[in-house]
């Protein structure tokens, strides 16, 4: 009798299945895929419970501060993005600005902190600018080779540096300049992301552990 195809790989005595992401060196691609998840979850929640949420702020609204030159459709606030859409937006920014996986986790910390401190909801009309603001701040204070605000104008061609600066000012004020991420908070977000990925069948890529990979992981 065939045992059938196992949907998940499990380690045995002879083979250890392991991904190459650790808390100190997370895998970039998997992490970015993962951080799109909670953003998506928050959006779904908002759409489920309060379709006409007015807990937003003008500075993050795409209608009044468009990210592209294309006309923003009138029903822009109704289109909820799917996981792929969010992932693509985040990935574009991360690969163009050469940001790290640690930066992605810090981005998520700032995102959640903003929503709590500022008492706003993430919704279809503002998610892009809120995510952009969080990435901008995370890359600035986390990476040693700080990205300047003007660099984001190279990536998203139609935005102005004045707009970025104004958004940064608002973001910092709403966070009350609290950009500190203690090691414990960082680790919590990392492991929460991993279990969230597991629940959503978006596991980190598992491969048999070899001697070379073990050395690399050390």
């Amino acid at each position: 009798v065939s045992p059938g195809q196992l949907t998940k790989k499990y380690s045995s005595c002879s083979t250890i299945f392991i991904d190459d992401s650790t808390v100190s060196q997370p895998n970039l691609r998997s992490t970015i895929k993962c951080i799109a998840l909670p953003i998506n979850l928050w959006l779904n929640q908002i759409l489920l419970f309060c379709r006409d949420s007015d807990r937003s702020l003008d500075i993050f609204d795409e209608k009044s501060h468009p990210l592209t030159r294309e006309e923003v459709p009138d029903d822009y606030y109704k289109h909820d993005p799917d996981h792929k859409h969010i992932y693509r937006f985040v990935r574009t920014l991360f690969s163009a600005a050469q940001l790290t996986a640690e930066c992605a986790i810090v981005t998520l910390v700032y995102l959640e902190r903003l929503l709590t401190y500022a008492e706003i909801d993430i919704c279809p009309s503002n998610w892009k600018r809120i995510v952009l603001g969080a990435i901008l701040l995370a890359s600035k204070v986390w990476d040693d080779q700080a990205v300047w605000n003007v660099d984001y104008c190279q990536i998203l061609k139609d935005i102005t540096v004045e707009d970025m600066n104004e958004m940064e000012r608002h973001f910092l004020e709403l966070l009350q300049f609290n950009i500190n991420v203690p090691a414990s908070v960082y680790a919590k977000y990392y492991f929460d992301l991993r279990s969230l990925a597991d629940d959503n069948n978006l596991s980190f890529l598992l491969e048999p552990l070899s001697k070379e990979r073990a050395q690399k992981l050390e």
Binding site: W148, F177, I179
Partner: peptide, 18 residues
């Protein structure tokens, strides 16, 4: 204008506030 708020200033403010 091109840099925005310098990261050193952001870190300084965050630390001093704590």
């Amino acid at each position: 204008a091109e840099e925005g708020v310098p990261f050193t200033a952001i870190r300084e403010a965050s630390l001093l506030k704590c």
